[in-house]
Amino acid sequence: MAAGTVTNPGPKVNRIGLPVIEYRGSKTTLCAGCGHNAISERIIDALYEMGVQPERVMKLSGIGCSSKSPAYFLSRAHSFNSVHGRMPSVATGALLANKTMMGLGVSGDGDTASIGIGQFVHLMRRNLPLIYIIEDNGVYGLTKGQFSATADIGSKLKTGVVNDLPAIDTCSLAIQLGATFVGRSFSGDKKQLLTMLKAAMAHKGTVMLDVISPCVTFNDHEGSTRSYKYMQDHEEPIGEVGFVPSFEEIDVEYEAGSSFDVEMHDGSRLRLKKLPENYDPTDRAVAVKTLMEAHEKNEILTGVFYIDTQKPAFTDLLNLVDEPLALLPQERTRPGKQVLDEVMAKLK
C-alpha cells in the first residue's frame, strides 16, 4: 500500500501523496445497500492504492443507475455520462483523442446487453484500452424493475413475472469477441473485486469486468438469481486472484501447478491461484467452455477467466503519434502550403 513515510499525524496518503478523500466523489443518490455503491468504494480504493493521478482518468458511462455512479467517485477526473448504450463509442473517441489517459467505463446490464449490445461487441473486438465495468443486477432500476437481458431464465420478478428467455453471458461474449482481460466479480466480495480492479488498471487493452451487483429495491427477493442471498449460495470463485503492482517488490514465493502468473504491460504481475486443473486463462476455448459448464450447474463463476497481454491495443494498431491527438499543435495537423500546391497542380 502507501509507500511514502508519513511523519505528521495528518491523513494517510498513497504513493503519490494523496489522501483517499481526493479519490472520492459526490454523495451517492442510489438506494442504500445498492451493490453499485460498494463497487464505487472499491474503485476508489483501487485508484488510491494504485496511486493513480486523478486528473489522468476519464470516466465514461451510458444511462441507468450504474451509469450515474461515476458521479460518486473521483470528482477530480473528467466524466462523461453519455446516452443509453453508447458509452463504448464515446469512450473510443475520447481515448483516441487522448490515448495517454486511463479510461474507466461504467455500464449496466441493460445499458450493455440490450440497447448497447451493438457497441459493446465492437468495443470488445477493437481491444480499446478501457476498463469496462458492468454493474450487473439483472433489472432496469430507473424504470422500476423490468428484466434485463442478463437475467437468468426462470428467475422471478417481485411481481411474480418469470423470465422465459436465456441470459446473455457478457463474459463469454467478451472473450469470443477479443477483449483481453475478462472476469466476473461480486460487489459483496471486497477483496476479489479490489484485486481485479487493480489488475485491470495495469492492463493495456479492453478489460471487461461483469460485477454482480444486487438491486436491493427490485431484484433482491426469493426467486431472483441476482440477490445477495443467491450470490452467497451460488458464487463459485474459479480461483484466487492475486496482484502485485509494478511498484511493489515481487515476492519470490510462487506456487507451481494450479497457479498462473502473468506479467502485465507495466511489469505488474497478475497471479491466479487454485485454478481448476488444466485451466489455462490464456485459452479462450477453455474459458468459454468453463463458463458454459458452470452456468449449466447454476453456479455463478467469478474471478479472472481470460487474459491476453500480447494482442495489440486499438491505439497501437492505429500507429498513433506518441502525444495525444487532441493536443497536437497546428504545425503537426495542418500540412504546409506546398502540400496544397502539390495537390492543386495534380488537379489541373
Binding site: 476519464m58 465514461l60 462523461f80 453519455s82 446516452v83 453508447r86 463504448p88 463509442s89 464515446v90 469512450a91 473510443t92 473517441g93 475520447a94 481515448l95 483516441l96 483523442a97 487522448n98 489517459m101 451493438g118 457497441q119 465492437h122 495525444p324 491527438l325 487532441a326 493536443l327 495537423t333
Partner: peptide, 16 residues
C-alpha cells in the same frame, strides 16, 4: 450511431 458517438467523445477530449 457509433460514428457520431466517437466524434463527440473525441471532441469532448479536445480533438478535431
Amino acid at each position: 450511431l457509433a460514428a457520431i458517438g466517437m466524434v463527440l467523445g473525441a471532441g469532448w477530449a479536445g480533438a478535431r
